[in-house]
């Protein structure tokens, strides 16, 4: 049988047609993960019982597979009468799963700011809120830009998991073609290559951004 190049090429447009969906899902999930992750990190940093609990939740998320979270949300939410589209459930799953990782990114981004910065802010009588807005947050954003970009790539590469929930992203499309034609190899290889190219291109962009930020830091 072998690899049918013509058939592979003919499947490219269909699969490429889902690039938009894939990028969209990755982007929204990344924002969701960042929002939850930031919230988690702020609560953890505040300490107390809430902080310890959230710290444990973060550890729990990081100790469990994304696939299990997707199944969990997909089957458990309807059990409680919450009916959402599979795309929504998928985005929720990716957001929740990666929030555990992004919380660590925020933590590292804040910890890397020298202690003298918040002390100087206090010595200048800036309120806590102003110190966060004008002194800590801008420096944190610079510290997290590159790791955040790298996690965007990770999330992008996790979007094909949503195929198990029948979300029509690229892997889903590839399987659609496969089940119509009974040829699995070609569409899967095409989908894999498109992901590889996307991931490498974005990683490369992140690396450049990182270098520019480093240059800015030493100016």
């Amino acid at each position: 049988m072998g690899f049918d190049l013509a058939f592979a090429l003919s499947s490219v447009p269909t699969i490429l047609g889902a690039v938009g969906t894939t990028l969209c899902v990755a982007f929204v999930s990344c924002i969701g993960a960042a929002a939850i992750g930031f919230f988690f990190e702020m609560v953890r940093r505040a300490g107390g019982i809430a902080g310890l609990t959230v710290g444990f939740v973060i550890d729990f998320i990081r100790s469990t597979p994304v696939l299990a979270w997707l199944y969990f949300l997909y089957f458990v939410l309807p059990f409680y009468g919450i009916r959402l589209g599979s795309m929504t459930v998928g985005v929720m799953g990716l957001s929740l799963y990666y929030s555990g990782y992004l919380a660590e990114v925020f933590k590292a981004g804040i910890d890397a700011i020298p202690k003298g910065q918040s002390e100087a802010a206090r010595a200048l009588s800036l309120s806590r809120r102003h110190a966060v807005i004008y002194v800590i947050a801008p420096q944190m954003l610079r510290n997290i830009a590159a790791p955040l970009g790298n996690y965007f790539v990770s999330i992008l590469k996790a979007t094909p998991y949503l195929a198990v929930l029948a979300v029509p992203e690229m892997l889903g499309r590839a399987f659609d073609i496969a089940s119509e034609t009974y040829r699995y190899t070609e569409p899967l290889v095409v989908a894999g290559l498109i992901f590889l190219v996307l991931a490498l291109a974005i990683s490369n962009g992140v690396k450049r951004l990182e270098r520019r930020l480093l240059a800015v830091g030493s100016r």
């Binding site: 072998g2 690899f3 590469k157 094909p160 892997l171 899967l188 991931a199 490498l200 990683s203």
Partner: peptide
């Protein structure tokens, strides 16, 4: 290295699972 690291692992798994018998 980049092939193994930067590919989406779920797709790699399917590709090798379905494609190796073909070759």
């Amino acid at each position: 290295i980049e092939f193994w690291r930067s590919s989406a692992v779920i797709i790699l798994l399917f590709v090798f699972y379905y494609a190796l018998p073909v070759v």
